[in-house]
């Protein structure tokens, strides 16, 4: 069973980022700049884990902040700002990777199914080509991890990146992905199991 909060969830209005958005809604452009400077790097990295291309990741991040900017006048603090921001970012990234012209770039490692028997195998470079411990921090290993991440089903990838890389709680990930916390738990577990299997030689 997932963790149940011992205290009531904080009101969105107590979120300092929400306060910045409210100031922006009132016409304070500097508040938007503060939000941008605070979250731009995280959103670019989040997008990079989806598209694997810096220029495209930065373009997607710009799209996300353009949406935030345009939504400013009608913003309502219904959730934590980061939850809302990552929801926009997730939708932008999923739309990007689902574009037909991009499909060839992501290899279907496994179908989005609960049946482990339907899992496929990922084509990784020869592990012997990487020199053990020294490679752990190296670019080649990192590229391999990104390859495995990139081959995950989209919702597993989103759940793992949001929780592991961006540090969101399962509850916030569920809000961002519009699913239940138990579904997030399952997605993270399956994504982790795949990474563990594909990167076993480095563990």
């Amino acid at each position: 069973m997932l963790k149940t909060p011992k205290v009531a969830a904080p009101e969105p209005s107590s979120d300092p980022d929400v306060q910045l958005m409210l100031r922006f809604r009132a016409g304070d452009e500097n508040a938007f700049r503060e939000l941008f400077e605070k979250h731009a790097r995280a959103i670019v990295n989040f997008a990079y884990n989806f598209v694997g291309s810096r220029p495209r990741a930065e373009e997607l991040a710009q799209d996300v902040f353009l949406q935030v900017y345009r939504a400013g006048p009608r913003y309502e603090p219904n959730a934590k700002f980061t939850t809302w921001l990552y929801r926009i970012a997730t939708n932008a990234c999923l739309n990007e990777v689902r574009r037909p012209e991009r499909r060839y770039r992501t290899r279907p490692l496994e179908r989005d199914t609960d049946d482990p028997g339907e899992r496929g195998e990922i084509a990784l470079p020869d592990p012997d080509a990487i020199s053990g411990e020294s490679a752990l921090a190296g670019r080649e290993l990192e590229a391999r991890i990104r390859d495995v991440l990139g081959a995950l089903p989209e919702n597993q990838r989103a759940a793992l990146v949001l929780s592991r890389v961006d540090g969101l709680s399962y509850r916030d990930v569920a809000d961002a992905l519009a699913c239940s916390e138990s579904a997030v738990k399952s997605l993270v577990f399956r994504a982790t199991a795949t990474l563990r299997r594909e990167l076993e030689e480095f563990l």
Binding site: R41, N45, A61, F65, E142, I145, L199
Partner: peptide
């Protein structure tokens, strides 16, 4: 391993382009 992935640094002109 996942945590050891280095975050991408933003391009120097990223903010200006935005």
């Amino acid at each position: 391993l996942i945590d050891g992935m280095r975050p991408l640094e933003l391009s120097t002109d990223f903010a200006d382009r935005t």
